[in-house]
Design a protein around this nucleic acid. Structure first.
Lengths: 337, 337
DNA sequence: TTGTAGGCGTTATCAC
DNA sequence: GTGATAACGCCTACAA
């Protein structure tokens, strides 16, 4: 049987209330009393019981995070940022790996919605807006990343994707490319859409006509990227560069180039997005867009926690923006090969 | 205000006890009553309150995991396995990233030891045996990975590290190497020690004398590996192969070879350990030892959960063993380059 | 400045 | 089969 607050109070010859006040740094307690109580707490190795506290306060000091796949470094980076902020505020973080599966995601949501958490961050969630809004109604503080469900009650962190995508394509144009293919991610991702937007804008700004046949979907994974570039080649369109909506798909392009003995960047220049860890180690290293994922997670967690703690007024901005950067490497820059 | 059990009980014209019994699948309840209650639960959208349940049952159905760094894929793989098992048993998982820092690790331990979890998995923990045993005394079910604290009360998962390390070095010997360097991880890691053991045994079995000067410490990270190979070269020992206690340090060796224009594997053959994701993408691909990390996490979580659920008798084995495999790639095999 | 009493939502115990 | 009641450990009006 563990020590509880009344054991401490008896040993210190005060009431449980006083002990509770000491624990919660209530300034009403006299310094002497506080010291005495702290001493007993120390001696008895008393640790407050979280469940009892949660029950009484109707709070858990816990954040839930649902990511599509915990092994993808993009998500791990976000998680790291969320944790950094959470722990600095004495919050715990429960992580769920939805395994890219809507049913599993719903199941984990169930697991968390029994008041196990005060708030949740949904990363590239597949849930419907309705499902998410239900949670908001029930009192949860919700944040999203990646596939934003637009609603003034939902917190969100964004990056200037379209803008940097545009810069990336402009960089390719500056390298002398005119025929640039685009490999997109799956349809429901705003991210992919934004990157396409940047791609189109860069072309237009430089007087290059947009050719839809140069766009193929690669589903954001390596195999998809491989298949997409094969389909592009099959059309015999004579493009000299490709902008891939993420690094993962660019890996597939590398695979295809290796098989077909196509030199990067001489015969095909490539730029990806995400700055995954492997990208730096490819031959040649992959040019990419570096999103400050840790910072993104941190910023969103900060918003949620402030809201949970009641520090945010209703007018406060619920969207954080963290700028990304273009990283030029050998896969797109002749001078660096 | 959320719906609670008495709201359901009133609407269904039964007692709270009966509702509770339905929720917990108590077979005593008549089928009719059960159906009626379930209908009301559905209608009112009742969700049990975890904290209240935790308080009453003195259980949380939650596992805590502390890893040194959530961004290292080795740990992420373990976490994935732990989660797979946990969620299938309706357990939640709280993940803490100790950032390779003992103080932070202790802090997170504090965070969890207020009965936020029923059990904990400590991955390559820096805590002293005493600290960990205290938790056991306080009733937590503890599992360790990597740096095992040997005690019959502590759960543990191991792999046949020494054995496979020996195979790896034998593989190098078969490739014709006699002078093989070893880059070790930091001192407190059993893993590094086991790999050294395998290295020495392989040499001995093939009549090659063990030369301590061929061993350098690289602290398990890329920079350390880079520095270690430089120190080895500085000694002018004429070795032709190196066995690195993990892939991370092997990356540092690759860096050094690139700078020094040393051909892999012709001038220096390399074998690592961990089968990190990047290893496959290096030029040439890195030979390595593939630990079944997901399976390791899964096996350990299974032991803990069974113990928490009281399904394990005291005699049951508290150690799980998951075998690893040697992956031979271009960095050590001439025929594959 | 400190103490008393009641309740947070659930389940275990015992009685019917 | 079902129901009343107490208890899990803590916090917070309110009283002193």
């Amino acid at each position: 049987m563990d020590i509880k607050i009344v054991d401490v109070s008896r040993a210190a010859k005060v009431s449980p209330t006083t002990v509770s006040r000491v624990l919660n740094n209530n300034p009403l307690v006299k310094a002497d009393t506080r010291k005495k109580v702290l001493k007993v707490i120390e001696e008895l190795n008393y640790v407050p019981h979280a469940a009892a506290k949660n029950l009484r306060q109707q709070k858990t000091l816990t954040l839930g995070v649902i990511v599509p796949d915990i092994m993808v470094s993009y998500y791990t980076n976000l998680v790291k940022g969320i944790q950094n902020k959470a722990y600095s505020e004495k919050f715990k973080v429960i992580i769920c790996d939805a395994q890219n599966n809507k049913d599993i995601e719903s199941e984990y949501l169930q697991l968390l919605t029994n008041r196990s958490v005060d708030g949740m961050i949904l990363v590239e969630s597949m849930l419907s807006k309705q499902e998410v809004m239900e949670l908001v109604e029930r009192g949860y503080v919700i944040g999203t990343i990646g596939r934003s469900i637009v609603d003034p009650k939902i917190f969100n962190v964004q990056t200037n994707t379209a803008e940097v995508a545009q810069q990336a394509v402009e960089h390719l144009i500056e390298q002398g490319h005119k025929d640039i293919a685009f490999i997109s991610g799956y349809a429901h991702a705003v991210d992919s859409f934004d990157r396409l937007e940047g791609y189109i804008k860069a072309l237009r700004d430089h007087g290059i006509p947009f050719r839809p046949e140069l766009v193929e979907n690669g589903d954001f994974n390596q195999e998809g990227g491989y298949a997409a570039i094969q389909r592009l080649w099959a059309k015999e369109l004579d493009f000299t560069a490709v902008f891939s909506a993420n690094d993962e798909m660019a890996l597939g392009v590398y695979d295809a180039c290796r098989e077909g003995s196509i030199a990067i960047p001489q015969e095909l220049a490539i730029v990806g997005v995400d700055n995954e860890r492997v990208s730096r180690y490819l031959t040649p290293p992959l040019s990419t867009i570096n999103q400050l994922k840790v910072e993104m997670g941190y910023a969103l967690a900060e918003l949620l926690i402030r809201q949970i703690n009641g520090e945010l007024d209703d007018e406060h901005d619920r969207i954080a923006i963290i700028d990304s950067q273009l990283c030029i490497r050998g896969s797109s820059d002749y001078k660096r090969t």
